[in-house]
Design a protein around this nucleic acid. Sequence first.
DNA 1: AATCGCGCCTGACGGC
DNA 2: TGCCGTCAGGCGCGAT
Length: 271
Amino acid sequence: MPELPEVETTRRGVMPHLVHRCVETVIVRHRGLRWPVPRGLEKTLQGQRLNDVERRAKYLLFRFEAGTLILHLGMSGHLRVIPADTSVEKHDHLDIVFEGSRCLRFNDPRRFGSVHWTRGDPLQHPLLENLGPEPLSGEFDGDILFEQSRKRRVAVKLFIMNANIVVGVGNIYANEALFLAGIRPGRAAGRVTRQEYARLAEAIRTVLQKAIAKGGTTLRDFTQPDGNTGYFSIHLNIYDRAGEPCRVCGGEIRHKVMGQRATYWCSRCQE
DNA sequence: AATCGCGCCTGACGGC
DNA sequence: TGCCGTCAGGCGCGAT
């Protein structure tokens, strides 16, 4: 499932093939994503030049002259740049064909992804305007987490997965970051100390940056049909290792469902 | 205001 | 072999 590193890797992979090129055709094969693909997107995009591809949280922002295409990969979505005559496969919902036969193709089996169009500032779009800071930016640190969390009883794991607090911390990375910081996921957010939040913020940056580095090496060529996300190459310390020994202390890794999400921790390393 | 939990959707997997 | 039930999982939204 695409988490922030996968989305960032996707951005870096597709952008150089498409930027400064004009759209020739748009093909929508399945409008029924999480929200319907906007009516008239085909006409809106036709002839538009792509100026840049940016990312905000897990949203990709394709900046055209007349507006911005906002795209979320959902659970199972992925983007590739392929020759326009490449045969269509199951779940290929959307093609944006650029000059030079370069087709940006969106495939999403579970259809939790979405596509939006806005003429205004995409950062003011209702889906983006209330998002918290980017974890890899200078605006994010332990103090922000500490201050936002006072008097809040929600579990610290759910707290850091809340996109209004900080974006891009999906379930896997929340588990891994809490392990690195030595904090139990079930602790009330308001009871975690400033010092612990400093460690946690650093751990979040570390796991995300490592994952981006890995993704960057596996995803070098987006024109290859088998380009995968590099997700499985990430070294996981805790996620999906219930009952196995902790790599640091040998203690048994515990598992529990929290907020309908699989949660793992080491009962010795994490307090 | 904060928190909880639903539902969207398909593929993988286990049981029979 | 095949059918069926269950589960995962990001995230917005309505309910509490």
